[in-house]
């Protein structure tokens, strides 16, 4: 397929935590790695899913990609051009090309301005455009997202959840952005409304050949929307690759646990309630405290192994060119991935 339009290499984000009790206490600075050496790329017209649980760093990743957080370390290539996210011009260039739809439609829309003003925020170089041109652009964007024209003069509080997400989408589309970061765009919506938004996103992708970075915790949505997917766990990508491959043959024990826990209309097996999740490990493999396949090697941090269709960060696959067919599929092995 075509060249990747966005390449991210070794993205690391740290948050500073100051621990200082009262004024007299000695100030300590501690850094917490929220994202640890994340690498992935996206091609044009592709949906790349990022799935993870609470605290895995999904939202931090989304915000870093649009320049809200400054990464400690990162190599980003946009359309083949290297960007330095510590330089202001490069961050602006990044923002010009990557749009974002936030999870919370209430918090991301200014309640004091009308919908058409919110959408117009997304138009670049506004000074060069006449009022009529602006209006035409706003109309075009709102038609794209199937937002009725009568809503353009409403305020965000008058809109339903689904309509608010359509406004957020229109705001990014009006600037002609080709890469959209969707941070849990449907999590706060009812299922039937979620389905409408998913259909809309699929249609826009086909019509405008946009690329999505789709961030969610919902595996069924990932499966339905994404060609490729990355599994994020406490700041590390444990497995990434072709969606079908990952769902049908999960290689990493965490992926297997996650997919085994997903409910569909056909699940009826007995998933064990017995095991408690351990804390993420500070040393070695991050999942070792919760892993059912832990062995001695896991004390050391695993490198990422390339298994052809997927990349896996797990010592289980530390064999040179061996048999790649084996999977630690939790479902095939019954309670395999779930027992103590």
């Amino acid at each position: 397929m075509n060249e990747p339009i966005l390449e991210v290499e070794n993205l690391t984000v740290q948050f500073k935590r100051k621990t200082k009790l009262f004024k007299a206490g000695r100030e300590q600075e501690r850094w917490k790695k929220v994202l640890d050496s994340i690498s992935f790329n996206i091609k044009q017209g592709e949906t790349f899913g990022i799935v993870g649980e609470t605290g895995s760093g999904k939202t931090t990743l989304a915000r870093t990609l649009v320049g809200i957080y400054r990464p400690r370390e990162c190599r980003i290539r946009l359309n083949g051009k290297h960007l330095d996210l510590n330089k202001k011009e490069d961050v602006l260039l990044l923002r010009k090309n990557i749009g974002i739809v936030f999870q919370d439609p209430v918090g991301s829309l200014n309640p004091r301005v009308t919908v058409s003003e919110i959408i117009s925020e997304g138009i670049p170089d506004q000074k060069k455009l006449s009022e009529r041109q602006m209006e035409a652009k706003i109309m075009e964007a709102s038609e794209l997202v199937e937002l009725p024209g009568s809503k353009l003069e409403s305020f965000p509080t008058e809109l339903s959840g689904g309509e608010k997400q359509r406004v957020s989408l229109a705001r990014t589309l009006v600037g002609g952005k080709k890469i959209l970061v969707l941070d849990e765009p449907t999590s706060s919506l009812d299922v039937s409304i979620q389905a409408q938004i998913l259909n809309l996103l699929l249609r826009l992708k086909n019509e405008l050949s946009i690329s999505y970075i789709f961030i969610t915790h919902d595996l069924n949505v990932i499966k339905h929307m994404c060609e490729r997917v990355a599994v994020l766990y406490y700041g590390q990508i444990l497995e990434q690759g072709n969606t079908y491959e990952i769902f049908e043959h999960p290689r990493h024990p965490y992926t297997a646990d996650l997919i085994g826990a997903n409910l569909s209309f056909t699940s009826n097996d007995g998933f064990s309630a017995a095991r408690e999740s351990g804390e993420p490990s500070r040393e070695g493999c991050i999942y070792q405290n919760s892993c059912s396949k832990k062995f001695l090697q896991c004390e050391k941090p695993p490198p990422t192994f390339d298994l052809g269709k997927t990349l896996v960060k797990c010592w289980l696959y530390d064999y040179a060119g061996g048999d790649h067919g084996e999977s630690v599929d939790g479902r095939n092995g019954g309670s395999n991935g779930a027992s103590d």
Binding site: T47, V191, S192, Q194, A195, L198, N199, L202, R203, N220, V221, K223, H224, M225, C226, E227, T243, Y244, F247, S264, F265
Partner: peptide
């Protein structure tokens, strides 16, 4: 409304 299939298996 509940997505079940893989990508490119049609809209909901």
């Amino acid at each position: 409304s509940v997505p079940e299939g893989y990508v490119n298996e049609g809209t909901l």
